[in-house]
Simulated assay, not measured.
Amino acid sequence: MSVIRAVPYSLFTLASLFSLQALADDVQVAVAANFTAPLNAIAAAFEKDTGHHVVASPGATGQLYAQIQNGAPYEVFLSADDTTPARLESEGATAKGSRFTYAIGTLALWSPKAGYVDATGEVLKANAYQHLAIANPKAAPYGLAATQVLAQLKLTEATRDKIVEGQNITQAFQFVQTGNAELGFVALSQVYKDGKITSGSAWVVPQSLYEPIRQDAVVLAKGEHNATAKAFVDYLQGPKAAQIITSYGYALDAKSD
């Protein structure tokens, strides 16, 4: 069975990635950590339907932006926000007219313990926990959204000494999953599939408590002349990808429904 070929990315592998040359039927995709699981599924379907391969590098949006600026060989960027792709567009680092919203993210407060997180998030106000995991708000839009929720609930000061920051949303999730934090703000897609929470307990945070997490995709300058990059972003906007995206708890842009 064909699956996505994920390439871990760090400063230590920068040199090797610079030298990596995409094959004619490959597309190098930088993907926000929250969208890793849906991209796995989309990439498998894309490969089955087209024979093309997705080579993915997941990470925090801010870190991926820095890597793109430093010449990383990405051809498509799936961001966790809409401002970073717009910034790259303004800097002339993208294929003209290629930016679009591929998903709208949802924040969840989650614990692996059944019944620990109530359906309205009152567990936050009860303040009976020692650690609350969030993604780095300076690098990860889901982390920023978490701080907005705490501010709206007037819990910023009460939770300040309890917060443990993950480098990205994947690490924040791992902190909770491994018990290093009793609960944490994660992407709903990490704990949701086909209409239900897959494990533990969760509060799906109302959209009114944080700014919309519009996740934009863009073809980068390095992918402008790669037909596989174009085929992939077309597929990402198609019905099969849409079905996968919504199955993980994301909403679609109204213009894309």
Rank of each mutant, 00 (worst) to 15 (best):
residue 232 F to G: 12
residue 201 S to W: 01
residue 255 K to D: 09
residue 222 K to G: 02
residue 193 K to E: 14
residue 239 P to R: 08
residue 204 V to R: 11
residue 229 A to W: 02
residue 243 Q to M: 04
residue 223 G to F: 06
residue 203 W to V: 15
residue 205 V to A: 03
residue 221 A to E: 04
residue 217 A to K: 09
residue 249 G to R: 05
residue 240 K to A: 12
residue 189 S to R: 00
residue 253 D to Y: 04
residue 219 V to Q: 03
residue 220 L to S: 13
residue 185 F to V: 06
residue 220 L to E: 06
residue 237 Q to Y: 01
residue 201 S to V: 05
residue 255 K to H: 15
residue 184 G to C: 14
residue 203 W to C: 08
residue 244 I to Y: 05
residue 198 T to N: 14
residue 184 G to T: 11
residue 255 K to R: 13
residue 189 S to L: 01
residue 192 Y to F: 11
residue 255 K to I: 07
residue 235 Y to P: 04
residue 210 Y to F: 13
residue 189 S to M: 01
residue 184 G to I: 07
residue 254 A to R: 12
residue 194 D to T: 07
residue 218 V to Y: 02
residue 214 R to T: 13
residue 234 D to E: 11
residue 235 Y to E: 02
residue 245 I to K: 06
residue 191 V to D: 10
residue 248 Y to G: 05
residue 249 G to A: 03
residue 233 V to K: 02
residue 184 G to Q: 04
residue 217 A to I: 05
residue 211 E to D: 09
residue 253 D to W: 11
residue 190 Q to R: 03
residue 206 P to E: 02
residue 189 S to A: 10
residue 224 E to R: 08
residue 224 E to M: 09
residue 218 V to E: 01
residue 215 Q to G: 00
residue 256 S to Q: 15
residue 230 K to A: 12
residue 223 G to S: 09
residue 185 F to Q: 07
residue 207 Q to V: 10
residue 212 P to M: 13
residue 213 I to E: 12
residue 227 A to R: 15
residue 256 S to L: 13
residue 208 S to W: 01
residue 223 G to R: 02
residue 209 L to H: 10
residue 253 D to Q: 10
residue 186 V to G: 00
residue 215 Q to S: 06
residue 218 V to T: 09
residue 218 V to P: 08
residue 253 D to L: 05
residue 210 Y to D: 07
residue 198 T to Q: 09
residue 215 Q to K: 01
residue 241 A to S: 11
residue 249 G to I: 00
residue 242 A to N: 12
residue 222 K to E: 14
residue 191 V to P: 06
residue 247 S to V: 01
residue 220 L to R: 01
residue 208 S to D: 11
residue 223 G to C: 10
residue 211 E to S: 10
residue 220 L to W: 13
residue 204 V to L: 15
residue 201 S to P: 05
residue 249 G to T: 03
residue 224 E to P: 00
residue 187 A to Y: 03
residue 207 Q to D: 15
residue 207 Q to S: 13
residue 236 L to E: 03
residue 245 I to M: 06
residue 252 L to H: 15
residue 244 I to F: 04
residue 209 L to W: 09
residue 197 I to E: 00
residue 230 K to S: 08
residue 185 F to W: 03
residue 230 K to I: 14
residue 200 G to S: 04
residue 228 T to M: 14
residue 195 G to L: 00
residue 245 I to W: 04
residue 221 A to S: 12
residue 210 Y to I: 03
residue 204 V to A: 10
residue 197 I to V: 08
residue 254 A to F: 10
residue 225 H to Q: 08
residue 241 A to L: 04
residue 245 I to L: 15
residue 198 T to A: 11
residue 198 T to M: 08
residue 233 V to F: 01
residue 222 K to F: 07
residue 240 K to R: 12
residue 193 K to L: 12
residue 200 G to T: 04
residue 210 Y to P: 09
residue 224 E to F: 02
residue 205 V to Q: 15
residue 221 A to D: 05
residue 200 G to C: 03
residue 219 V to K: 00
residue 185 F to R: 09
residue 249 G to C: 01
